[in-house]
Amino acid sequence: MSDENGPDTGKPAKKAAGAELVLPVAGLIFTIYYFTTIIDVPWTAQVSAFFVGTILIGLIIALIIRTVIQVRRGEASLSLAPLIAPRDYVPKRLALLGLTLSYVFFIEWGGFTITTFLFLLCSMLLLSGGKKKGLILTISLILSVGGYFLFIVVFNTRFPKGPVETMLHGVF
């Protein structure tokens, strides 16, 4: 379980500082990339980003120094454990991520209703470990059909439309 907006890593004896560096390193790479896009532009486009970006780089360097000191003192390790803990859930989580990516990828072709139905069905079955098939089927069906009425019929959103929407277009 995650904490409300913050961390919730089971604390090992040594602080896993490696994981803590993932976001700052990503931030550092992004900031450097950002800087490369504003080298040759009017100063108005540079001023805020250079100001904030320089502070961010400074903060990240400070964190890296802090981590190095902690590792040297033996208070922390460069482990990435919190990122993947608990390990038992890694396959499930990766599978859910894969399903989510496929959902977004296929919605352009399959349309909202059927893609949502399949996503809900597959991901709930994944999380339940294949149990309660009937209930999951019912929930997926109700939500995707309900979603169709709410988003497409009532709110007329410009969702990609697939076979279901096309078929029902004349009806609603």
């Binding site: 931030g27 992004f30 900031t31 990339y33 950002y34 896009t37 504003i38 532009v41 009017p42 108005t44 486009a45 805020s48 980003a49 904030v52 970006g53 961010l56």
Partner: peptide, 17 residues
């Protein structure tokens, strides 16, 4: 904040990041 600065600046509309 850095992520928030993605996009064109308001004056010359220069795309950034």
């Amino acid at each position: 904040l850095m992520i928030g600065y993605i996009g064109a600046d308001v004056v010359y509309e220069t795309p950034r990041g």
